[in-house]
Every structure is written in C-alpha cells, then in structure tokens.
Design a protein around this nucleic acid. Structure first.
Length: 270
DNA sequence: AAATTCTCCTGAAGGC
DNA sequence: TGCCTTCAGGAGAATT
C-alpha cells in the first residue's frame, strides 16, 4: 500500500521519462476512481510536463502553465512506464501517452484519485490543510510535542493523521513506534519530549531507508519498471504478529487501533 | 476541536 | 473443488 516511500519511489522512477516531454494522447478506460476523472482528453494533449513533484502521497505533474495533474495511488495504485501498444490488463484505468510510451495507472481497489487544478497545487482543498513533510526541517521534536499535547488519542492514530504529519501510513507508523520503543496505543499527550525526539528520528530514518530500498511491496505495489520494492525485508514488526521480537524474542502482539491493525512488542514498547 | 464511525473497492484467505 | 463470508486499508465525509 503506497505510503510516502512508495510514492516517492514512483516519482523518481517516472520523472526522467516524463519531464520535458509533451503529452500526445490519453486513454481513459474508467471515468471514475474515488472521484470522477477530469476531462483529461481535453486538458492534457499538447501539454509539456515541466516537473513531477510530491506533496504527502500526492504526485503533482506540472503541465506548462496550464495547471497541475494530481495523482493519488490510494492503497493499491501503481504507475508504470510501458510501450503504448502493451495490452491493458484488468484495472488498468488510464494511459497518458507521450510518443512511443505511456504512463499507465493501475488501481485494483480504485481508492486512488486523479484530479486537475489550475491554481497552485498547495492551495488545492485536499492539500492546503496538510501537515509538514516528515523529511523536511519543519517536522521536528518541538513541533510534534506541541501537536500532541491536546491529543488524548493513540499516538499511532496521531502519526497517521495528515494534519499532523503526512505520508506516514500503517506500515511505517508501526515500524517507527517499534524503533522508538513507544506503544502504539499510548495516549499521545503522555509521551515525554525526549521520547518524541526518538520518534521523530525513527520516522525520518525509516522513511529514508525505505526510499533507498524502493519502498515496500506487500501485494500490489510496483515501481515504474514493474519491479517490487525491497523494504519488506527490513520490516521489524509489521505483519509479524505472533512471531518473536528480533530484540527480545517476546511474541509480537496485535491490537486494533483506529480501525487499523497494529503489531507491537509488549516488552520493548511502552 | 477532537474523536469516532462510515464509506468506497477488490482480492486473498479461511471455513465448511 | 467451490461457494460464501470476512477482512485489509488511505483518507475524506459525516457524525457525535
């Protein structure tokens, strides 16, 4: 399920193929994902992709001065670069063609989104209230400390709240809390500053390492060339419920926190 | 304001 | 083997 490292991996993969290229055509096989698609056949052909950036889990394709295409991969989306004559498979919803190749969006569960904005993307309603990027200087210990003092809910829920910090989903929240020795269900406001310092560092370190590994592939995620991400092999707790903790050998447990399954070590995390 | 619940969807896994 | 049920999960929307 694409979280920040998977989206960033995708961005880095497709960027060299698309930047500076002119879109020659579009094939829309399904007119709505999470929301109806914009009229891409009118908006895109003839536009040149200036750059591809990322905000939270959104990919932003800047198209000339005309506007920006926003793509969200939901939980099962992937983007690939393929020759335009590659037969589409089930759930291949959209091709954006540029010469002999196309950017193909596949999303079995259709939780993803494709949107268009002709104003600066940071002002888009879905982006304007987002918290800081976890790998930016704006995400620091004092910020997280201030953001958690009034929050009595589980720290894991807070980490996955995009208004606090973006890009951290179930996998990396689970891993970061283990690395920092914090119980995922601990009330956020009851975590001391020094422990939040460790948590900030863990989030940064884990996200960076995951990007270096091309993200985590559990089932659906693939890079632009079809290869999986390799961070799955570095996961310490996610998906390991019932197996021994790598540090202390205690059996890892699982709890539902905010509708999400959360693995943790009852000995190492408090 | 913060917290909780509901919702979208498909494929995999488990039960019988 | 096959049919049915359950579940996972990003995150906006609705509700309390």
């Amino acid at each position: 399920m694409p979280e920040l490292p998977e989206v960033e991996t995708t961005r880095r993969g497709i960027s060299p193929w698309l930047t500076g290229r002119t879109i020659t055509g579009v094939t829309v096989r399904r007119q709505a994902l999470r929301w109806p698609l914009p009229d891409l056949a009118t908006l895109l052909p003839g536009r040149t992709v200036q750059q591809i950036s990322r905000r939270a889990k959104y990919l932003l394709l800047a198209c000339d001065a005309a506007g920006t295409l926003l793509i969200h991969l939901g939980m099962s989306g992937s983007l690939r670069i393929l020759p335009i004559d590659t037969p589409p498979q089930t759930h291949d919803h959209l091709d954006i063609r540029f010469g002999s190749h196309c950017l193909r969006l596949r999303d079995p569960r259709r939780f993803g989104a494709v949107l268009w904005t002709d104003t600066p993307p940071d002002q888009h309603p879905l982006l304007r209230h987002l918290g800081p990027e976890p790998l930016s200087p704006a995400f620091h210990t004092n910020y997280l400390y201030a953001s958690t003092r009034q929050r009595r809910t589980a720290i894991k829920t807070v980490l996955m709240d995009g208004k606090v910090v973006v890009g951290v989903g179930n996998i990396y929240a689970t891993e970061a809390l283990y690395a920092a020795g914090i119980h995922p269900n601990r009330a956020a406001y009851r975590i001391a500053r020094v422990r939040l310092d460790r948590l900030v560092a863990a989030i940064r370190q884990i996200l960076s390492a995951a990007i270096d590994q091309g993200g985590t592939t559990l089932r659906d995620f693939q890079q632009e060339d079809g290869k999986p991400g390799y961070f799955r092999h570095q996961l310490q707790v996610y998906g390991r419920t019932g197996e021994p903790c790598y540090r202390c050998q205690t059996r890892l447990r699982m709890q539902r926190i905010g509708q999400r399954s959360s693995a943790y070590c009852p000995h190492c995390q408090h």
